[in-house]
């Protein structure tokens, strides 16, 4: 029931934002929005909300604090890829990292962050939540020991993912 109300309210807010055109909404728009939000919320209540982790406002603050740093890393990544497109200097390989995260939300955040940041692209994830990362410019010192050190690959993203998702 709580899941249904949360997803219906979410859908209704999106409806209000999408139908806003500089004037106040008419009564007919609001009524149609409530009906559609109830239908969509009923259909998607089991898919959309698995648990209530994101109801905690501390996580939203964490996401807001994470965004500027993420955007900075993303800009750096793009200049890196641009440099490699223009010069063709690459040394690719697939490495395994064990970030030691438990929840699905944290591992999804980490995998998407890795894909959008310097020279790395997540390829696969196994049952113990180890990530397999395609790295465009493999550094030799990481290859020496087997539980790979994830600092050179994705800097402090696992800590951020833990704070957001665990």
């Amino acid at each position: 029931m709580l899941a249904f109300i949360a997803s219906a309210v979410f859908c209704f807010v999106i409806w209000l934002l999408l139908t806003f055109n500089g004037r106040m909404w008419g009564t007919d728009e609001i009524v149609a929005g409530i009906v559609m939000a109830c239908i969509a919320g009923y259909i998607s209540r089991k898919i959309f909300i698995k648990d209530f982790k994101l109801a905690n406002p501390k996580r939203w603050l964490m996401i807001l604090a994470y965004l500027p740093r993420f955007f900075y890393e993303m800009a750096k990544a793009n200049f890196d890829v641009a440099y490699r497109v223009l010069t063709g200097r690459i040394k690719p390989g697939i490495v395994k990292i064990a970030p030691d995260l438990k929840s699905d939300l944290a591992i999804t955040t980490l995998a998407n962050s890795i894909t959008l940041t310097p020279g790395t692209l997540s390829v696969d994830v196994d049952e113990e939540k180890n990530l397999y990362v395609h790295w465009i410019n493999v550094k030799d010192e990481v290859l020496e020991k087997m539980p790979r050190d994830y600092k050179p690959i994705c800097s402090t993203f696992p800590e951020w993912a833990r704070r957001i998702g665990e």
Binding site: K91, P92, G93, T115, L116, V123, Y132, L143
Partner: peptide
Amino acid sequence: NPTGAHAIARAAHRSGVKPARAVVDDLEAK
């Protein structure tokens, strides 16, 4: 976009495309 890229990379590796000029491939070993 990143989720789609992840899906394509995984499908490519499972369908047997090897990374060209790779110096290491942990997923292959696993």
